[in-house]
Design a protein around this nucleic acid. Sequence first.
DNA 1: TCTCTCTTTCAATTGTACCTGAAAGTTGTG
DNA 2: CACAACTTTCAGGTACAATTGAAAGAGAGA
Lengths: 168, 168
Amino acid sequence: MEYQEGKEKFIQAFGTLGSKWGINRTMAQVHALLLISPGPLCADDIMSELSISRGNANMNLRALIDWGLIYKELKAGERKEFFVAEKDMWKVVRQIMLQRKKRELAPIMEVLSELNEQVQGEGEEVEVLKKSVADMHNFGQSADKAIEKVVNSDENWLFNTFLKMLMK
Amino acid sequence: MEYQEGKEKFIQAFGTLGSKWGINRTMAQVHALLLISPGPLCADDIMSELSISRGNANMNLRALIDWGLIYKELKAGERKEFFVAEKDMWKVVRQIMLQRKKRELAPIMEVLSELNEQVQGEGEEVEVLKKSVADMHNFGQSADKAIEKVVNSDENWLFNTFLKMLMK
DNA sequence: TCTCTCTTTCAATTGTACCTGAAAGTTGTG
DNA sequence: CACAACTTTCAGGTACAATTGAAAGAGAGA
């Protein structure tokens, strides 16, 4: 397979994956493009590689910076901004886990806490609702803790060892 | 808070959560509704509770059965089909992990394997592409193994212990 | 200050996944 | 078989998110 074809397949696959996980297809593609670029790229590079508009490129680059997945880089003597991706896969995954926890786990946990405390009434249907809420709240807390531990495992020899075992 | 309000908030929150994770909003809402229903519901119950059409209800009920998250139940003397949700939170999460692994991890792993084996050529850009592909393939395999282990942890005392520790 | 280059914004457009409802299909019963 | 009770399908419509492109903004150097 030629380089160009491989590159396109990679970017394409990444975009599809992203969209199945609730992440903007283009954002995922920009990320993929930067991941396989040996050097920094500027907005125009990305626009022409992915055939997208200036506005779209700009929006998704900002979003990726916001997620902590790419960095802005300034070249001496150039006005243009360049971008590079974090290429350490473990850091990438860690960053994604943290961001999604913050953006999507946290809000629902708040709703669950509220329901946990405030739903009144009696009867079977109320009990079933309360139990569901409590179970999910519980599970969410466990998940939160597990994510924190995994994300910070570098600092913890014991968990690091267990994690490696888990993945073998 | 009254029961009805709590119920609506629960269903609403679940729907939002689902859509942020690439799961059909309505499917998540139907699931939520069944989770907090003391008894089985039929298609008409769901249509009126969620104000959705017959076709929509049918589609999403089939999908939920397909995911292994709800079951069909027949009542003696009734033609209608009734539905109940699996309410054990751990089984629910397990099922979702397995299904998503099958549906979304597997396809991209195939692309990565293909690229891993078939990308030809030399030069820095080819090397960077190859490295990205290899890293991701690696990570994907680890994730796959970790999911398998977590999902089957009931049978494995050591990992069960570890998991509990991870979540405390 | 003016101009040139690059970045950001946003109203209008486009794209896409989802939903509807009616019609066709299925199945049990008299 | 004919009917009634439900389920499934799907062509067309809707709603929402993503995208465009042009205009406004921002900053550096002459």
